[in-house]
C-alpha cells in the first residue's frame, strides 16, 4: 500500500481516499490507482493528467477565495494528492440531522451553495460532479460550504458546461432529498447574485432541463 499509516475511508471507481498523518497534521490522501484494463502507457498518462488537473482546479479555487481543501502536496509519480482534512458533515448528512432540517438552516445552506458555485463559475472552473455528498459544511462558526472532489473538474468558459454543472446538482438534489424544489430555487437565486454570467447560464439551464445532460443524441 502506497499510503503510510493511512486509514481507508472511501473507495470509488477512480480513486481511494485515506486519512493519514502528514507533517504533524491529519490529512486526506487521494490515491488514483492504476487500471489493469488500460494499456500501461496510456494509463500512466491519463492518471497523471487527472491528478494534476484536480490539484490545479483546487488551487485555482483557493486563489479566488472559494472555500476548498488546501492542497498540501502532489506526488504525481505515485498519483497521490495530500490535502486538508475538513472537519464537518457533508451537506447530505447535515440535511438529515434535526438541526439541518430546519427552515433557517436550509436557507443558509442554499445561500452558501449558490454563492460558492457562482464564484467557482466566475473563474471558469466546472466541477463536473456536484452532489450533496461533494459539498461539506465546515464545522466552525461561519458554517461555510466547502466544495470537494474536483476529480472530474475542468476549466471551461462555456455557458453550456456551467449550465450542465447546475443541472447535475439539481438532479442529485431531487433524487437524494425529496421535496426540496424550494431549496434549489434558493440556491439558484443566490447563484444569480454572485455569478456574473448567471443570466445566460440560467437560461441555458432551462434548455438543458428539457433535453438532459447530453447535448447530442448521436452515437
Amino acid at each position: 500500500m502506497a499510503v503510510h499509516q493511512g486509514t481507508l475511508i472511501k473507495q470509488g471507481a477512480e480513486a481511494r481516499v485515506y486519512i493519514a498523518p502528514f507533517c504533524g497534521r491529519k490529512a486526506i490522501v487521494k490515491e488514483r490507482f492504476a487500471k489493469a484494463y488500460r494499456h500501461p502507457a496510456l494509463d500512466k498518462k491519463l492518471t497523471s493528467r487527472r491528478v494534476t488537473q484536480e490539484a490545479r482546479c483546487l488551487n485555482r479555487c483557493q486563489k479566488a477565495l472559494i472555500d476548498t481543501p488546501t492542497v498540501y502536496m502532489v506526488d504525481v509519480a505515485s498519483s497521490l494528492i495530500y490535502m486538508e482534512l475538513i472537519d464537518g458533515l457533508s451537506v447530505r448528512e447535515y440535511m438529515e440531522t434535526d438541526e439541518g432540517s430546519t427552515q433557517a438552516a436550509r436557507t443558509h445552506i442554499a445561500e452558501e451553495i449558490g454563492r460558492a458555485l457562482g464564484k467557482m463559475h466566475n473563474i471558469d472552473v466546472v466541477h463536473g460532479d456536484l452532489t450533496t455528498s461533494n459539498l461539506l459544511m465546515r464545522n466552525n462558526d461561519s458554517k461555510s460550504v466547502v466544495l470537494i472532489d474536483f476529480g472530474l473538474s475542468y476549466v471551461s468558459n462555456l455557458v453550456e458546461d456551467k449550465a450542465v454543472d447546475l443541472y447535475v446538482l439539481e438532479r442529485a438534489f431531487s433524487s437524494t432529498h425529496p421535496n426540496t424544489e424550494v431549496m434549489f430555487e434558493q440556491i439558484l437565486a443566490s447563484y444569480g447574485t454572485s455569478c456574473k454570467a448567471s443570466k445566460q447560464i440560467l437560461k441555458k439551464l432551462e434548455e438543458v432541463r428539457l433535453r438532459g445532460r447530453k447535448r447530442s443524441m448521436l452515437g
Binding site: T52, L58, N59, Q62, K63, L65, T70, V71, V74, Y82
Partner: peptide, 25 residues
Amino acid sequence: IDPKVTDKAQVLDWIIGAMAMKNVL
C-alpha cells in the same frame, strides 16, 4: 497573497498551496 486573506491560518494555507503547485505543470 490576496489582500483579503488576513487570518494567519489562511495565509499559511495560501503559502502551502502555492508551494504544492509549483512543480505541477
